[in-house]
């Protein structure tokens, strides 16, 4: 009886989704690609992943303690950030660089802007770019699968070296978690089925890149399967905080990502443009949200008041 008389403000209907539940789903979806990366790149890849996750969780933990904030490690978002960052790094990267990347992701990009839900950019993407700009040599040293030392060109740098089959299943050099398109797509399907992400962003993002490569006379399948496009489109461009709210906004965001990725890949000095494109579009999200604000039911555009002649 007592409970029924409690007065509470809205929302009155609550969904059972929790942040930690969603993050757990993302981790489950990422795991197959992670395990595959560890198989083809060996223990070194596992070490990079472990260090980036541990550094991310530890920096979140210490930040909350030092600033006397409620402990937020339990929501698993730091684990996801660390895992995503680790998957975006080459397996040869010195471990301390991976740790710096995680600290930058959590402290600089996430916590300094207010923590989960307030960051202006995807922490893992921003940290990857910070590392790429800071250590260009170490960040682009990729090895061939099952070898510790043989450096190998990524499919983006040497498009004709790999068959589509090798690209699809991920048997080529690259960042730890980006190689196997198949396993990433399986993870993405899991997230879509679990309704963690909407399919709008991955479809529009990948579709735009495919269409533009087709128009430019490239093999669209090749452009989709090489580089970090699928990892970025499925897991990084679908972050709740840094993407638009409405599906229309999401579509604009994703098409922008695809367009920028294609432009950077084809005309830029860098071989890969997915991370830069997502970062740039992250920054545009507030404007996209403003332009795609849904109309309330029954809303009529106010007529412009006619100027009265003086």
């Amino acid at each position: 009886m007592r409970e029924q008389l409690n007065v509470a403000s809205s929302p009155h209907i609550r969904h059972l989704d929790t942040t930690s539940g969603i993050m757990l789903d993302v981790i489950i979806a990422l795991l197959p690609a992670c395990i595959f990366g560890c198989i083809i790149f060996g223990l070194r890849a596992l070490a990079v992943l472990a260090v980036s996750v541990a550094a991310a969780v530890l920096s979140e933990f210490l930040w909350n303690i030092i600033l006397k904030k409620p402990q937020s490690v339990g929501d698993l978002s730091a684990v996801v950030t660390g895992l995503l960052l680790g998957m975006n790094l080459p397996s040869t990267l010195p471990l301390w660089m991976a740790a710096i990347g995680s600290v930058a992701a959590i402290i600089v990009v996430k916590q300094m802007f207010g923590g989960i839900g307030c960051n202006f950019a995807n922490p893992a993407i921003a940290a990857r770019i910070i590392l790429l700009v800071s250590f260009p040599g170490a960040m682009t040293k990729f090895v061939a699968p099952l070898s510790d030392a043989v450096t190998s060109a990524t499919p983006l740098a040497a498009p004709n070296e790999y068959t589509l089959r090798e690209l699809f299943f991920g048997w080529h050099g690259g960042s730890i978690g980006e190689t196997s398109a198949f396993l990433l797509l399986v993870g993405g399907l899991y997230l879509i089925v679990r309704k963690v992400i909407s399919p709008v962003i991955p479809c529009c993002f990948i579709g735009t890149v495919a269409l533009l490569s087709l128009l430019a006379g490239e093999n669209p399948l090749h452009s989709i399967l090489s580089g970090g496009l699928i990892l970025g489109a499925v897991f990084m461009a679908t972050d709740y905080t840094t993407t638009p709210i409405t599906w229309k906004g999401k579509a604009i965001f994703a098409v922008g990502c695809g367009l920028l990725s294609f432009v950077i890949r084809r005309f830029g000095a860098l071989p890969e443009g997915v991370s830069y494109s997502i970062l740039l579009m992250n920054i545009l999200v507030p404007h996209i949200n403003r332009f795609t604000r849904p109309k309330p039911f029954g809303w009529v555009k106010p007529k412009k008041e006619e100027k009265q002649d003086a």
């Binding site: 301390w96 600089v108 800071s134 250590f135 170490a138």
Partner: peptide, 16 residues
């Protein structure tokens, strides 16, 4: 003994 973070010499590092 450690490779420096070049980003500090670039505009983002300056703003930071």
């Amino acid at each position: 003994f450690i490779s420096p973070m070049i980003i500090f010499l670039l505009p983002p590092g300056g703003f930071f």
